[in-house]
Amino acid sequence: MGFFKRLKNVVDAKANKALDKCEDPIEMLELSIVKKEKLLQDAKKQCANFIASVDSIRNEKKDIQERINKYEEATKAALLKEDVEKAQTFVKQKLDLETKLVSTESRIKDQEEQIQLIKNKIQDLEIEVSKMKSKKQELATRIDVAEINNEINETLAGLSDDHGINLDELEKKVTQKENYGKALEDLKPKNEDEILDEYINNSPVVDDKVQQELDRIKEQMKK
């Protein structure tokens, strides 16, 4: 494989990994979880403000009710004293407070309904965040397993960091170097002993029976 083609493979591999990282589903899911947790915190703060507001209105209702009771007692006292004018004034004040009490109770009811709606949304959001966190853990595990499998498959398919290394070609190159070494060894100057040893080792060995037959034939030819 040529140098430039190998370089292109390296660049392509790194670019693909960079894109995969940018599109990491775990990071995208984590970002969504962070946003929803922020919404959850804001909803809880809003709900706390509503609850505090209702508590204030309840205190206001309590004060109104106490004043209504006092005007009731004052009206009774005025009637006992036959002070009709005072009795009428107290009754009028009492009726105004009762009207205000009805309005206050209506405000409390509206606020409580808003609080319940927010609580329901908070509960739904908490369930959704919990599901997203579970899904994140599941996906993270699946991605880890998938990446390991992909690395193994890429290695087996010759698509990993070897970038198309051919083992047969490598073996041929090694064999060629070994043969070159042997050739150099054969070309080394030999001393006299080595030459004699080589001549002796390369000389044919004659079988005794064959030699005896040769001698017999030679003797017969002389006759």
Rank of each mutant, 00 (worst) to 15 (best):
A157Q: 10
K21P: 00
Q176W: 07
S106D: 15
G164H: 01
R6T: 03
L156P: 01
V10W: 08
V210H: 12
K100I: 05
P204K: 04
K44L: 05
I115G: 07
A157T: 05
Q123D: 15
L7S: 09
A43W: 06
N16Q: 13
I108E: 06
K76E: 10
I33V: 11
N16T: 08
L97M: 02
N16L: 13
V91Q: 14
K81C: 03
I165D: 14
K92N: 09
E198C: 01
Q212W: 04
I115E: 10
V54F: 00
E73S: 11
F50A: 08
D186G: 04
M1P: 11
L31T: 10
K100H: 09
Y199S: 02
E82S: 08
A77E: 12
E154F: 09
Q212P: 02
V205A: 07
D55P: 02
V102P: 01
V206P: 07
M28E: 14
Q93N: 15
R58P: 00
I127H: 11
N9Y: 03
F4K: 09
A74Y: 15
I165E: 15
D63H: 08
E138Y: 06
K119T: 12
E171T: 05
P25A: 02
K36L: 12
K14W: 07
L139I: 10
L79A: 01
Q123R: 10
K119G: 06
A13L: 08
H163K: 09
E85W: 02
E194N: 05
K177D: 11
I127T: 13
T155C: 06
L170F: 09
N202W: 01
L117I: 09
S56C: 05
D96Q: 14
Q41D: 14
K94P: 00
K94Q: 13
Q93P: 02
E37C: 03
V102H: 10
P25N: 01
K121N: 15
R6D: 01
T104P: 02
K119H: 06
K182E: 10
D144M: 05
L139G: 00
V102I: 15
N69M: 04
I152W: 02
I195R: 12
A18N: 08
I122V: 15
